[in-house]
């Protein structure tokens, strides 16, 4: 079996495309089932929360910097800060925390 990089890329691209497009094209009408509607209502928040923690602690060089960014983000968002300010604050938190750790 030959190993062509372009075929690898193509296979992955096709699979990704089908997964992403299938439900959107098959489900053409609003779902009326109350359970399914409720389930889909909670899905985005649960998914994003699961993906955020503890991954945020693994993204940084020091887990504590990621944890600090999480806490700062939650406080800022709770006080009404939007996407951009929260994202910038989280980056700055990590940058400052890791700078401090490097000095110790």
């Amino acid at each position: 079996m030959s190993h062509n990089v372009y075929i690898y890329i193509f296979v992955a691209a096709i699979v990704s495309f089908v997964i992403r497009v299938l439900p959107l094209t098959l489900i053409r009408k609003p779902i009326s089932n109350p359970f399914v509607r409720s389930f889909l209502y909670y899905v985005p928040y649960v998914t994003l929360a699961v993906m955020t923690f503890p991954a945020i602690m693994e993204a940084t060089q020091w887990p504590i910097a990621g944890l600090a960014a999480l806490i700062v983000s939650i406080i800022a968002a709770f006080r009404g800060a939007g996407l951009f300010p929260v994202a910038i604050l989280s980056c700055l938190t990590v940058f400052v925390m890791e700078w401090i750790i490097a000095q110790i």
Binding site: L48, A49, A59, T60, A76, L83, A87, I88, A102
Partner: peptide
């Protein structure tokens, strides 16, 4: 240090959404 700081911006946005 820059890669590390930038890599949490996505999570910051997730927090701002949830």
């Amino acid at each position: 240090s820059v890669v590390s700081a930038l890599s949490v911006s996505l999570y910051g946005m997730f927090i701002a959404i949830i």
